[in-house]
């Protein structure tokens, strides 16, 4: 369990671990999964601050919050309240979308932006599906597309307590509230990515079946000076599938920040 914190009147649950340069990590649509080893791996070299998005985990989703814009302002307020300086802003999947929405608004508290397979922009034409319709395919196919090794994603829901199952169901609804239409993107975000004025690094799993490396190249082209590297045998959640390698890549990125 993380600790509760009130931001802009919203009760959030945040996880905090480790010492060093702060990293504000924004979790994917599948949730934070805070008891998985990746948080510890990141915390060896950083002070990791990982909020559960409103509606996920123990975080409330008040009626007045309903867009990714709201989340961007909420986390800017969180960074201010925690007095973060020279922090790394990181996010994966849905969390990467939120991180980019934050970065086009205000980077004053951040020294670098780390995006792992972010959703959030529209690249192709009206008939091109840039982002796999995760809600239009069976769960088993989602796992096959999102993971290089789907066995690592196995969760036996029948063995989880009701409180945890309730949190999973609430999180799934929250993801729909924020990302159902337009599906997991903001049609205008791509045009504002040029505003990102801090070093930006993209990490992409080579087996990502949710958003392709070609989609990653489009992100790279829009953000001034952005770099990108890929991870072999990795799907859509690099930190979850290979926690140690993801932590090592993160440390390599933060070492080159001033």
């Amino acid at each position: 369990m993380g600790r509760p914190i009130s931001i802009a009147g919203v009760s959030l649950e945040i996880e905090e671990k480790g010492q060093g340069r702060p990293i504000l990590f924004l979790h994917p649509g599948e949730g934070l999964q805070a008891n998985r080893p990746w948080l510890d791996a990141l915390a060896r070299n950083h002070r990791v601050i990982a909020p559960h998005h409103p509606g996920f985990g123990g975080s409330a989703l008040p009626d007045w919050i309903g867009t990714v814009d709201d989340l961007a302002y909420l986390y800017l307020d969180l960074a201010a309240q925690l007095n973060l300086e020279n922090a790394v802003l990181a996010g994966n999947c849905f969390g990467g979308w939120i991180a980019a929405e934050i970065a086009v608004r205000n980077t004053a508290r951040f020294a670098g932006l780390l995006l792992a397979a972010p959703l959030g922009i529209k690249v192709g034409g009206v008939l091109d599906r840039d982002i796999t319709d995760m809600h239009g395919i069976p769960r088993a196919e989602f796992l096959r597309r999102a993971w290089a090794d789907p066995a690592k994603a196995e969760i036996d829901y029948t063995k989880l307590p009701d409180t945890e199952l309730g949190a999973i169901a609430r999180g799934r609804e929250a993801l729909a509230v924020f990302g159902w239409k337009p599906y997991m993107h903001n049609p205008r975000l791509k045009r504002w990515l040029h505003r990102i004025d801090i070093p930006t690094h993209l990490i992409w799993g080579e087996q990502d079946g949710i958003v392709s490396t070609a989609y990653g190249e489009a992100w790279k082209a829009e953000i001034p000076g952005a770099t990108m590297e890929t991870m072999p045998d990795t799907g859509h959640f690099p930190h979850w599938e290979f926690p140690e390698q993801f932590a090592a890549l993160t440390s390599a990125f933060t070492r080159r920040l001033v």
Partner: peptide, 25 residues
């Protein structure tokens, strides 16, 4: 009807979803 369209997130109550997760796929 194909599985993904039977229970879109938010359509059913949290309680009903908990019951479905417990019941297994």
């Amino acid at each position: 009807v194909a599985e993904p369209f039977t229970n879109p997130p938010g359509y059913n109550s949290i309680g009903a979803n908990v019951a479905m997760l417990k019941a297994g796929p």
